[in-house]
Design a binder for these strands. Sequence first.
DNA 1: TAATTGACTTCTG
DNA 2: ACAGAAGCCAATT
Length: 139
Amino acid sequence: MDSAEFHAAVYEIVRLIPHARVTSYGHVAKMAGMPNHSRHVGQALKFLPPNTNPPIPWQRVLGSTGTISSRGPGTEGAQRQQEALEAEGVEVTEGRTGELRVDLRAYGWFPSVEEVRALREAAAAAAVQEDDIPEDGDA
DNA sequence: TAATTGACTTCTG
DNA sequence: ACAGAAGCCAATT
């Protein structure tokens, strides 16, 4: 699997994260078949264009302990992520040192590899249908 | 070619 | 529970 395929797999998996649920970089990496590539999931999301169709809910991917990654000096990016999460009903709490954290027991989404594979296939099938049906129920 | 970097994770103290 | 160090691996310098 080269890096382009890995990125594509990451995008596919991130799109499967349900509304108001979150998962971790490491889990996405594992679902993509690359358990040691948690950092590269972050890279893939960094390369993500701002407005994709369908949209990719990058804000639902957090660190393994539910913390929002700081991405370097500024906190703007992390705050955008916090706002996006709160906008869909996910509670984000702030620790003493300013860390933004989500309760994984409440919002975490960590399905097995099997489940994710099934979801990916279902999503692919649905996409084909949308593509294939320009008109509705006429004979 | 070697060193550095990073939207990470896990182990230690 | 929290901070620091080590491990990780592809991309960039």
